[in-house]
């Protein structure tokens, strides 16, 4: 075996990513001599010992840093943050210099699923999040995905499953899934498994035990749990699964109707409000976050069209100009006062 790949093979073995063929190569090499055996154990030992250990911790004046944090947190008035507001702003925003830019690598999966027979999971190692009547809740996941859970719904996470991002749902939810080809995002309903394959789309079910999936952009695979039949949907397509799949049809309804309360703002930062407006209407809004990110907005925009909402924002924040294009709305200028 070429010595060049030795370290890589050992690393693959240590991280559990080694193939059968590679494992055989490595084992043969180790068995070749006592020196090889020792070398293997040295690399292994270095790997094990290079995790962060107590002794590696950086010396920090923790009390001083805590005071610093409290000062900062209080300046921002923590109480203001207490209002239940859904935050779906992209986590990489800090790298966008002055304007929000459509992040092409983010997959959007809109899932509206209504389910009756599916109770919260009783399994150990799961995490169940629930919403009550009239409550819309959002969750931001470590991987960059976010989930908007409509009222009276339960969402179950399975943190112990590492090979995929699996979630089961009882009720209605909208998913914004960050791309990760090595960890597929799978949503389980009583009769379907919905798997994110490509970019962005929306899914909805409106009757009990019936799953409806409609795609905003990109590609989604819907698989029937009993029987294992599956269909793949792309942009603008919709399918209903009850006992069997309906024919695939074109869909026009790609907005988030039914998420009442989603656009109710109460001293909400504009950055948050805009993300929700974008999500609701499936459009990208480009605006100057330098001027407006910290502005606050209060009001109920439920039932209004995008044009009506933008007209209100234009007056409130003295926006100079608003251009509506196909999928993008461009806002120029503006001020918080």
């Amino acid at each position: 075996m070429k010595k060049d790949v030795l370290e890589l093979l050992i690393h693959k073995e240590l991280t559990g990513n080694i193939s059968v063929k590679e494992q055989a190569l490595l084992t043969d090499w180790i068995d070749e001599s006592e020196d090889n055996k020792l070398e293997y154990r040295v690399v292994q030992a270095i790997w094990e010992a290079s995790t962060i250990q107590e002794a590696d911790l950086m010396p920090v004046d923790v009390d001083k840093q805590w005071t610093k944090l409290m000062d900062k947190a209080e300046l921002k008035n923590p109480n203001e943050e207490k209002a239940k507001v859904v935050d779906l702003t992209p986590r990489r925003r800090s790298s966008f210099a002055w304007m929000k830019i459509a992040a092409g690598f983010i997959l959007l999966l809109g899932a509206l699923l209504v389910v009756r027979t599916f109770g919260p999971s009783q399994q150990p190692n799961t995490l169940v999040e629930s919403t009550s009547h009239g409550e819309v809740e959002s969750f931001e996941m470590i991987d960059g995905s976010s989930i908007l859970l409509n009222e009276n719904a339960d969402l179950t996470f399975f943190p112990h499953i590492k090979s995929e991002r699996r979630i089961s749902l009882n009720g209605e939810a909208f998913f914004d899934v960050a791309r990760n080809e090595t960890k597929p995002f799978i949503i389980e309903t009583p009769n379907a498994l919905i798997r994110v394959l490509g970019t962005s789309f929306k899914v909805s079910t409106e009757e009990t035990n019936e799953t409806v999936v409609s795609v905003r952009h990109g590609k989604v695979q819907v698989t029937q749990k009993d029987g294992g039949k599956s269909v793949i949907l792309t942009k603008g397509q919709e399918v209903t699964l009850h006992n069997d799949f309906s024919p695939i049809k074109e869909t026009m309804d790609l907005t988030l109707n039914g998420f009442d309360g989603m656009l109710e703002f109460n001293d909400t930062r504009l950055l948050k409000a805009m993300s929700l407006i974008e999500l609701k209407f499936g459009k990208k809004i480009l605006w100057d976050t330098n001027l407006l990110a910290n502005c606050e907005v209060t009001g109920k925009f439920e039932g209004k069209t995008l044009e009506e909402i933008m007209a209100i924002l234009k007056t409130v924040f003295q926006i100079e100009k608003i251009d509506f294009n196909n999928e993008i709305v461009l806002m120029t200028g503006g001020t918080c006062n």
Partner: peptide
Amino acid sequence: DQQTAEDIGQEVFMELWKKRDRISITG
């Protein structure tokens, strides 16, 4: 870079505080 590391530490906990009522930690 110790100074930057401390700043980043502050940011991480500031964000944890700001997002406390909607944060969902799966692990």
